[in-house]
Structure formats: structure tokens, C-alpha cells
Design a protein around this nucleic acid. Structure first.
Lengths: 339, 339
DNA sequence: CTGTTAGCGCCTTCAC
DNA sequence: GTGAAGGCGCTAACAG
């Protein structure tokens, strides 16, 4: 089916293609008469500009890419990504931008995916939804001076535009919160060790222990993947220790469900025997039993602000704050309630 | 930053642009020598074809659009969409297709969004993730003969390619399951009444009652939005009835969490006093307390098959099954356990 | 204000 | 096998 073009409209309206083009791009210097005439014909012909052709001529795609974490098979199921994507979507649809979802499954190299996106002119800018230590993706984008915003923090460069929580502080607060509840044997279950967010949360935990003169114990610190199953397995190890912890901080809600399951299986009581506290405050934490105290990180807001910053960059406003911090809040629930 | 083009490669390789183009599109009738030479230069120049230009010339975008439900502010948070998107993503990345996320927030008209997508040549095909009665989007796409696959079912036309569960049967089974457990006062909490999936699930429920000679009671049937909060409110109404139900089927996990919350608040026991059973088997059902019996609808598989069918259509294989059914399974949990 | 011209970068006949 | 030429649909100077 032959789609109708700007030429068809022009011919029928008795004007030149460029006049039609001007109407489309809302050029001011054009008479009301011809404008209305053209609009009328456009309506009549049910014409709609071919965005591909516009993109080629404008060298602009009106599309932003959202890069989901590598190896997304399971991790992508974390509600965090859904929530931040929602924030991104709200902002970008306001600007009439499209969203391209970028994932690298299986054997593909993440850098190849990025290369294809930016060299192929598929997107105007990117939002990364996570960061690792020595992050290759960040390095690649930075080296190529490609516009992007990071949801998370970058350890290597301080010229990266990013939106993040103060995870170190949040973790410090959460740890202190447990200490105030009288707990001293506090373990920490993390996700991937190379992930920056985990590093931050771990640091905050360690600092809080130190400031409260509690000795940090190596065996109270374990890491694995951001999966429910990992939480389950790691907790088992903690419960096998000679000196079983009386509180556990888990770096993610999904993992904490696994932890909770194991704790119950082993017949420990939450919160009496072991207190549990977690991060992200997804709906999972709210409906767990007992419900889990969790840090609300404002995922949707992270997405929104990241997207707004990206637009700001694309519009050339370089005076934006490089690193923006989104507030967090401890949501206390049963898993840490003192009776 | 000037991006390098096919011409640059051609010049440096001492061949014509068309030759380079042939190398890119893996044309066979080309000598090994020139091919290698060109590939070498491409590598050296770090050349990557401009996909926008290719799209314009080929009239093909290598992109599929995934249409999220209208008014997505909250509904989009349902894990179902995340899971089916994952399935779609796995298949499309195999084919090197990009995924465009399409949402219509706020005041926009969904049809406008679709119009913009297809008239604007932004995607080769679409996947709809839900269907309503008298669905305008389906009608529009069908009228325009635009390639698309529906996750769900269409009531009006039987020439729509779709992937769905047998929701009627599933609901019939779930209702029968509760009846076998000795329950007779079974209520049904649905989501949006105009949604096809709700209609199907309601029909199955009604049929099961009928086949078991249980009278259908109007006051046991209530509908609202696909939200946790709706489940909460609707359940309150059920518990206020003179004849309180002894079992409730909820059309969605998220809603059933709300229902569970209310049931507990009102001091009814699950499953002893009231059994609860639900649909979708998201992680929410598993970790609720008590855990909730739910129909596993295979969300990821729905996404995968929908995407495969779309590719099949795009490749011109019109001999595909129009309506494909994905299997379901009752996952029994505490909320319906008889002691 | 409006039309003409020349691309955007790639692909695809059609010749050789 | 390879090159030249024209076109995909739109935009952006440059004229007038």
C-alpha cells in the first residue's frame, strides 16, 4: 500500500512541498490562508508525515533508549525496572519522544548493542538503569560523547550525569535503625559485588557499625545475584554460623523474600529472633509476611528525573547538576517492629 | 560530529558506494577479494550503517511496537506486563529487532498514538498486550490492515491473530476446584468489566457454578479496576453481605493482595473461613501470607509466542494458526488448602 | 511569504 | 562482479 507523501498534499493544495513541510514544522512565516488550506488537505488525505524520512533529514530520532541490565533473563523481573521505566515513560511521552527498550540477552556483547544504537542513529540519547564498577558501557558512551543519563552512580568518572539515591546514607540509616532497636549482630546480604549500588549500601552499613563501635565480621557479609533464590541460599549460610545474626540487611526486596522464606523454614522468628530490613520498597516488601521494613528509593521518580535530565542535555542546557540525589525514606513494617 | 558514511568507505576502498552496500546486505554476487577489502576498511573506519537511511530506502524499520494498556499510570505496574515484555524481548532480540514501547498517558487518544506509529512508519508490526470489548485499537489496526498480534482474545472479529490462555476453561477449573473443596458460596471479583479477559474468566466461573447446580448470586459478583486498592474495597462489600461468601475468586494477583488484606482486617481466616484463589501466578501470589492459589498463565510464554507469530506474519507466512492457546495450570497454595 | 534546489545515507534497478 | 543514476520522503538553504 503506497503511502501518501508530502508531494501529494502539495499538489492537491496547489503549493510546493516545502510549504507543506513548513506547515508541518509549524513555521511561523506562512499565511493563515495557505496554512489552513494545507491542513485541510492533509486531513482530507489522511496524511501523516513519514517519521523515518524526517529523521534522516533532521538527523534526530525523537527516540530515547532505555538500557536494561545485561543478562536480563531474570534480573529484569525486578519491579525496580518496571517502576523506573514508568517514570521515564511519563516524561518522554510528554515530549512526544519514543522509547526504545535495549537489552542484551545471551551471548551478545552489551557494547555491540550500544554501538548499533548510537552508530546506527537509532536514538538521540540513552538512559542506563544500573552501573557497575569499571562499567564498560559508561566508558564507551563517555568516550563517544554520546548523550546519556545514568540511574545510579559512577565510581570512575565524575563528569557523568546521573540520578541516584544516597544509598550509602540510606544504608547507614537503616543499619543505625537496627542498632537502635538493640541489635548488634547485623549481617549484610548483597547482590552482585561489582554493582555500584551494592558497594554504596555496603559502605553505609560498615560505617554505621563503626560509628556505633560494633565490630564488623567478615562472615556476616555475603554477596550473590539479585535474585530471590540467592537470598534464600545466602541466608542459609548465615543461619549455619556459630554466632547467628540477630538482624539482616538485604540489598533488595526480591532477595529479602528468599531470605524470609529461609528464616521461616529454619524456625527463626521475625522480628523477635532476627530482624530483616531491605531496600527498594517494592510491593513485595509490603505484602510479605511478616511485612518487610524497606527503604523507599522512589524508583518512579528516579526514572522521571533521569529522563528530564536527558532532555535537558539534548536541549543543550549544560548547566544541569551532574549528580542529582533523589530522597529516600525508611518504611517501617513488621520485620523490625519491637513489641 | 560528522558520522562516516558509505561513501567514505567506498572511496577509501577504491570501490563504488553500491559495492559497499552490497557487502553490507550480504549480496552473494561479489568477489571474495573486494568483499574482504571492504570489510577491512569498514573495520578500520569503525563504520556502521545508518539505520535511519536504511529504513527509508528499505521501507522497513526492524522495529516492533509493544502497546501497553491505556491509562497506564498504575496498571502498568502489574507484573504481567513485565513478564510478557520479557518474552517479547527474548524473541525479538534473536531477530535483531528493536522494541518500541508505546503507551498513551493522560489525555492522549490511544488511536492517535497508533496512527502516529503506523502512518509515521515507526514500526513494522505491533503487539497489543490486552483487549477490550469493542476495542477501538483492534478495529483501527484491522481496518488499516496493519500487522499485529494480540495477547488476549478479540470478541468482535475472528480473523485476528492472537495468543491467549483459555481463560474460560481456567476459570471453570478454578471454580470447580473450590467447589470440590466443599465451597458453595463463591464470589467473583473482576477487573475492568469491558476487558475481555475478565469476561472470559467470569463466564468460566458462571458455567462451573451452573454445572454444579449452584445458584449464581448477583451480589457475589463485583468489578472494578485492576488495582490492589480495588480488591481491597470490593472485598469489604462482600464481607458486608448478609450471606458472606466462603470463597472468593479474584481475577488478578495484585487485586487479590488487596482482598487478602481486607479479609485479614475483618478477622476472617484464610483458608478456613474464606478460601481465596486468583489468576496470573505472579511472584505476589507466592509470597503473600497465606500464599495464594493462582492460575499460572505463562506470561512470558504469551509474550514469546505473540512475538514469534508477529514475525511469522511479517515474513509472509499466512498459514499460521489465527488463535493460539497457551496452557495454564493451577498452582495450589495455602489460601485454598484443606487441612 | 513561497518555490526551487540540493541533499540526509542508503538501496536498487540498469547497464557494462 | 561492479559502477552510475535515481529515488525513499522530508528539510534547509537560497532566491525571489
Amino acid at each position: 500500500m503506497k503511502s501518501i507523501t508530502i508531494k501529494d498534499v502539495a499538489k492537491k493544495a496547489g503549493v510546493s512541498p516545502s510549504t507543506v513541510s513548513r506547515v508541518i514544522s509549524k513555521d511561523t512565516r506562512i499565511s493563515e490562508n495557505t496554512k489552513n488550506k494545507v491542513l485541510e488537505i492533509m486531513e482530507e488525505l489522511n496524511y501523516y508525515p513519514n517519521s523515518i524520512a524526517r529523521r534522516l533529514a533532521n538527523k534526530k530520532t525523537d527516540t530515547i533508549g532505555v538500557v536494561m541490565p545485561y543478562g536480563t533473563e531474570d534480573i529484569l523481573m525486578n519491579p525496580f525496572f518496571q517502576e523506573s521505566l514508568r517514570g521515564i515513560s511519563i516524561v518522554s511521552s510528554d515530549k512526544c519522544y519514543d522509547i526504545l527498550i535495549c537489552t542484551s540477552h545471551k551471548n551478545e556483547d552489551e557494547i555491540d548493542v550500544l554501538r548499533c544504537l548510537i552508530k546506527g542513529n537509532k536514538v538521540d540519547g540513552l538512559i542506563l538503569t544500573r552501573s557497575n564498577e569499571h562499567d564498560e558501557a559508561i566508558k564507551y558512551l563517555r568516550d563517544n560523547k554520546f548523550p546519556f543519563v545514568l540511574i545510579g552512580s559512577c565510581l570512575e568518572y565524575d563528569d557523568i550525569t546521573s540520578v541516584d539515591n544516597d544509598n550509602e546514607k540510606a544504608s547507614y540509616e537503616l543499619t543505625s535503625f537496627l542498632i537502635e532497636k538493640g541489635r548488634k549482630k547485623i549481617a549484610f546480604i548483597g547482590g552482585e559485588l561489582y554493582s555500584v549500588v551494592i558497594k554504596n549500601r555496603f559502605e553505609g552499613y560498615k560505617d554505621a557499625l563503626k560509628d556505633n563501635n560494633i565490630e564488623f565480621k567478615d562472615e556476616y557479609l555475603i554477596f550473590d545475584k539479585f535474585l530471590e533464590e540467592s537470598g534464600y541460599k545466602l541466608t542459609d549460610k548465615l543461619l549455619n554460623l556459630d554466632d547467628v545474626p540477630d538482624a539482616i540487611i538485604v540489598a533488595d526486596d526480591l532477595m529479602s523474600l528468599g531470605a524470609m522464606k529461609k528464616i521461616k523454614e529454619r524456625n527463626y522468628k521475625v522480628p523477635e529472633g532476627i530482624m530483616l530490613a531491605s531496600f527498594n520498597n517494592s510491593i513485595l516488601a509490603k505484602y510479605s509476611n511478616p511485612s518487610i521494613t524497606s527503604i523507599d528509593i522512589n524508583s518512579t521518580e528516579l526514572g522521571k528525573r533521569a529522563c528530564e535530565k536527558l532532555f535537558s542535555i539534548l536541549e543543550g542546557n549544560e548547566n544541569e547538576l551532574k549528580k542529582e540525589i533523589i530522597s529516600h525514606k525508611i518504611i517501617e513494617r513488621e520485620s523490625t517492629k519491637t513489641i
